Simulated scan of single mutants.
Amino acid sequence: MFEVRALPVLSSMILAWAALLLLYLMLRHFLYKPVSQFLNDRKEKIKSDIDGAKVLKEEAIALRDDYESRISLAKKESQEIIESARKRGEELKEGILAEAKKEAEGIVSRARKEIAREREVAFQDIKSQAGEIAILIASKIMEEEIKIDKQKSLIDKFIDEVGSSKWQS
């Protein structure tokens, strides 16, 4: 039959402890150290990846801020360029309008001078025609032959005296 003991046999207990110690040492040497080294390497890699990600995030934030400031500056410059172009356009418009007004005034002035000159020419033509008509009428009436130059000078003098008072009033 079996014997039941409360305490195990000392030799089997020492042997079990020795086997357990040997198994512990072997597992520690062959399994724990490589797994521990692997986990530490992995931990360091993850830590370096996190640190790298933080640096990249900071760089990305800096780049974003830089781009936002550049965009803001570009918008401001574009508004200034647009405003400058608008002002220049207004100045050009005003200059063109002033030049056109000046040219129109010059055209009107030249037209008035031309009208005055044409009026004077027409007046002189009327005077000469009136003189010739008066000479013809006078020569028919008088049936005398007076020299045409003398008649013409007399008629011109008469027309000048009468015509200038009529034309000027």
Rank of each mutant, 00 (worst) to 15 (best):
M1P: 03
M1R: 03
M1Y: 02
E3H: 05
V4S: 06
V4H: 06
R5E: 10
S11H: 03
S11T: 11
S12A: 03
M13E: 09
W17H: 10
W17D: 02
L21T: 11
L22C: 10
L23E: 04
L23D: 01
L27Y: 03
L27Q: 05
H29P: 01
L31F: 12
Y32M: 05
Y32P: 03
P34G: 05
S36H: 13
Q37G: 04
F38Y: 13
L39S: 06
K45M: 07
K45Y: 08
K47D: 00
K47G: 01
K47S: 09
D49A: 14
D51A: 15
K54S: 10
K54D: 13
V55K: 15
V55M: 12
L56T: 07
L56M: 14
A60P: 00
I61A: 07
D66W: 05
Y67S: 09
Y67K: 15
S69A: 15
S69L: 11
K76T: 04
Q79I: 07
I82A: 08
E83P: 01
S84H: 04
R86T: 07
E91Q: 15
K93Q: 04
E94D: 00
L97M: 09
A98H: 06
A98G: 02
A98T: 11
K101D: 09
K102Y: 00
K102P: 03
E103D: 10
A104W: 07
A104K: 13
A104D: 01
E105F: 06
G106L: 10
A111F: 12
A111L: 15
R112D: 05
R112G: 00
K113H: 09
E114L: 14
A116K: 12
E120I: 11
A122H: 03
A122S: 04
K127C: 14
S128N: 13
Q129W: 04
A130Y: 01
A130H: 01
G131K: 05
I133L: 14
I135M: 14
L136E: 10
L136G: 06
A138F: 08
I141H: 05
E143N: 14
K147Y: 02
K147A: 09
I148H: 04
D156Y: 10
K157Y: 06
F158G: 02
F158S: 06
D160E: 15
G163W: 11
G163A: 14
Q168G: 07
S169Q: 11
